[in-house]
Design a protein around this nucleic acid. Structure first.
Lengths: 127, 127
DNA sequence: CTGTATCCACAACGATACTG
DNA sequence: CAGTATCGTTGTGGATACAG
C-alpha cells in the first residue's frame, strides 16, 4: 500500500512460486551479524578507516571486522582503498550498490529504535 | 510514536556512543536465515499451518522450520495456536509485534526485487 | 498433519597474540 | 594504523528417519 502496486505482482510469482526469493537473496547479502551495523556506520559517517570502524561498531574483534569487510567487498557492497603508504591508511566506503541499501538499513534501525529501545523513564522524569 | 523526528537524535548517542545499538538489536531478532522469509509469508498470507509454511518457504526442512518457529515464538513475534485436535491442526500467525516488522521486511523484499532479481529477458519475451 | 530425534558439517564468532 | 594467525566454541543448518 506504500508505493508500488504493479511491480509487486511479480513478487507473488517469484517468492511464493518458489525458486527465487527476493528476501532470501537479500539476507544472503546482509544477513551476517555485523553487516548491517557496518553498513549503517558507513552510511552515516562516510568513508572510514579500519580502526575507526572497529571503534564505532563496538564489540567486534579485529578478525571479525576484517572478515566482514572482506565479505562485503566480495559482495560489491563496500570498496576498499589504500590512501596512504607510509603510515598505512586504508579507507572503506560504500559502493553505489551498497548505498542503495540505505532504506533497508534505516528501516531496521528505526524499528529497533521504536520497539527495542531500553526502557527510558525520560517521559516521566518530572518526578 | 511512529513518525518521530526528535528521538532519532538519540540514535547517534546510542549507536555511535556504544552500549546499545538499534540495528544490532533488530538483527538479533530477525537475523536468522529463514526468519525474514517466514515473517514475510505470514504478512502476506496471514495465519498458516506448519506444512503450508514448509511448502511456501521452499527449501527449508521440517527441523529448521520447527526451530525457527519456536525461536520466533520465544521472541514474541509469532504466536502458535492449536486449532484442531483430531487431525492435529496448528496455526501460526504474527503477533502485533511481529506485524510491526512489515516495513522492515517489505523494504528487504523491495530491495531484493530491485537489485537481485535474476536477469529477465521478459521484456523481449514476445517470442 | 505436525512435528521430534539424531547426527553431522560447517560457518560464524570470539579471544589472544603477533606482524608490516 | 591495519590487519593476520591460531585455536577453540558455539550457532545454524541440512539430511534422514521416526512419532503422536
Amino acid at each position: 500500500m506504500l508505493a508500488m502496486t504493479e511491480p509487486l505482482n511479480q513478487l507473488e510469482v517469484w517468492c511464493e512460486g518458489k525458486e527465487w526469493c527476493p528476501i532470501t537473496s537479500t539476507t544472503s547479502l546482509i544477513g551476517k551479524k555485523w553487516h548491517p551495523v557496518i553498513i549503517h556506520r558507513l552510511l552515516k559517517h562516510g568513508p572510514s578507516g579500519f580502526n575507526e570502524l572497529k571503534e564505532a561498531v563496538d564489540g567486534i574483534s579485529s578478525k571479525v571486522l576484517s572478515d566482514s569487510l572482506e565479505d562485503l567487498e566480495n559482495k560489491q557492497l563496500v570498496s576498499r582503498e589504500i590512501v596512504n603508504e607510509k603510515p598505512v591508511r586504508v579507507q572503506y566506503s560504500l559502493t553505489q550498490y551498497g548505498e542503495s541499501l540505505q532504506p533497508v538499513i534505516f528501516e531496521m534501525r528505526d524499528w529497533g529504535m521504536e520497539y527495542l529501545a531500553p526502557a527510558e523513564d525520560a517521559e516521566s522524569s518530572t518526578v
